[in-house]
């Protein structure tokens, strides 16, 4: 049962990967098969059921790309 919902505003992302490094559950990965409007690989989460809604990814994101909701 997922505890959180994470939404990425992917076209604002600059692919810095700080969110992936900050995630304590290490579930944020960069999508190497996609390129966003700016030309970067955007982040995605495969195992959203692991998310604990801590908001660390959104706290460190310099471009305010991420919204985190607690379910």
């Amino acid at each position: 049962m997922a505890k959180g919902k994470v939404t990425f505003n992917v076209d604002r992302c600059k692919g810095c990967e700080l969110c992936a490094a900050a995630c304590p559950k290490k579930i944020i990965k960069m999508n190497k098969t996609k390129i966003n409007a700016k030309g970067y690989h955007p982040p995605f989460i495969e195992e959203i059921e692991e998310c604990i809604a801590c908001g660390m990814c959104a706290t460190i994101c310099p471009d305010s790309v991420i919204t985190v909701e607690k379910l």
Partner: peptide
């Protein structure tokens, strides 16, 4: 659903050049 973190209203919608 409670919002844990979202884009601040104190910022405009402009994309930064950083």
């Amino acid at each position: 659903m409670a919002i844990v973190y979202e884009r601040s209203k104190g910022l405009t919608n402009a994309e930064t050049h950083y």
